[in-house]
Amino acid sequence: MKALWKEFSTYAVVGVANTLIHWQVFYVLVTAAELSQAASNVAAFCVAAMFSFYVHALYTFEAGASVRRYLAYLCFMGVVSFVVGHYADVWKIHGLVTVASFSLLSLICGLFFSRFILFGGREA
């Protein structure tokens, strides 16, 4: 249990940096580039995911991941980010609510996906 708590805390710290990157890219794409929230959310997720994947592989899970598992992770979380952004566009929800909602979903879904699928091959 202690190891899982340490893993979650490290995951959360990296998640804060990931969230800052995601929110900034999202904001620039929505306001300056005038993209939809769906497109902006997916693009922002991809940029932030590159950062967090590298840091998580080095420090959080201390294991490498296969390219296939990494692509599965990107596809899964990319679809989640698109769906959140799409419904925000349809329902005309403020962008802050969009990124906050996705950040919460990303923390929960991303932790379990990363732990059990992406980096699931390592010993506990």
Rank of each mutant, 00 (worst) to 15 (best):
V84W: 05
A48Y: 06
H94W: 06
V47P: 09
T60G: 04
A12G: 12
A12V: 13
C75D: 02
G64T: 10
A63Q: 04
S81M: 09
E34Y: 12
L35D: 11
I93G: 05
H22D: 11
A88F: 08
T60E: 01
V14P: 02
T10Q: 08
A39T: 00
F102N: 01
C109P: 04
I108Y: 03
S9C: 14
Y11S: 02
Y70F: 10
A72S: 14
H22W: 10
D89V: 05
L58W: 07
E7P: 07
A44D: 01
V84F: 14
N41C: 12
Y87M: 11
F102Q: 03
M77K: 11
G110D: 03
A44Q: 00
V28P: 08
R115C: 00
H86A: 15
T98N: 02
C75H: 05
Q24E: 13
L118S: 04
L105A: 08
Y27P: 08
H86W: 12
S114F: 04
Q24W: 14
F45R: 01
C46H: 04
L107Y: 11
F112Y: 12
F76V: 15
I108S: 04
F82C: 14
V13A: 11
F112M: 11
A48P: 02
V16W: 03
Y59D: 10
A33K: 07
Y11T: 06
L4M: 14
K92S: 15
Q37N: 13
I117C: 05
Q24V: 12
L35P: 05
T31I: 14
S103T: 00
S66E: 09
Y27G: 08
F26V: 02
W23N: 15
K6G: 12
S81T: 09
V16Y: 02
V90H: 06
A39C: 01
S52C: 10
Y73L: 08
C75W: 07
F53N: 08
H86V: 14
F76N: 13
G121N: 09
G95T: 06
